[in-house]
Amino acid sequence: MPIVKTKNLSKVYNPETVPVHALRDVNISIEKGEFTSIVGPSGSGKTTLLNMIGGLDKPTSGTVEVNGVQITGMKDSKLIDFRLHNIGFVFQHYNLIPVFTARENVSFIMLLQGRDKKEMQQRADELLDQVGLGDRKDARPAQMSGGQQQRVAVARALASEPKFILADEPTANLDGASAMNLLDIMQRMNREQHVTFVFSTHDKRVIDRARRVITMVDGAVHSDEYQKAEEYDESKA
């Protein structure tokens, strides 16, 4: 069963006045353990597609299924709860809670899930260790670099044990070294723990690392190809 499946997914903004077709009959299927990039020029519909898959936006027509559950038409409150347990998010601007430490930022989503405090602490520490921030657990976002903040965001996305992680241009605000470091970490998690990642990006560094690249043009899937991804470099992680 695919983790994500879209069926004839379309989105039209301003249908009554000046219709803008953001998505046109998009049919994609993403399996568990994939490392997928959704690419395309600005306005091609990649962010809209990501928002649809993440249950943040509603399609004009078509459906989205996540792990066999159709989320299209789901009530807002139910959808929020569904996201909490099934989808991890990494945002372009990191979006960490500035008044929380790295550990608290990672724990917070588990707290929303109602997990045991001890378990939360333990998992948060493990995840921060995995993203190379074992020594920055008590640092607040303002005390960390952009790359470190984005790594905390990845740890936070993983903390809820989601079915897959959606990352909207995760390297857009990072310098080269930080971007490569982040990609190394995500690629390692994908290989070792079979974490499914779906990115929207136009960063070549990300595209080169992806095993599958879906190219969007004018709201439609222009190409959907598997490629030999650049190898994960253990020394960089």
């Binding site: 929020i80 809670i97 929303l112």
Partner: peptide, 14 residues
């Protein structure tokens, strides 16, 4: 706004 939007996105109930 961005932070609260993030909280709702990741699954914090309204």
């Amino acid at each position: 706004m961005r932070e609260i939007s993030m909280l709702i996105s990741i699954g914090m109930s309204r």
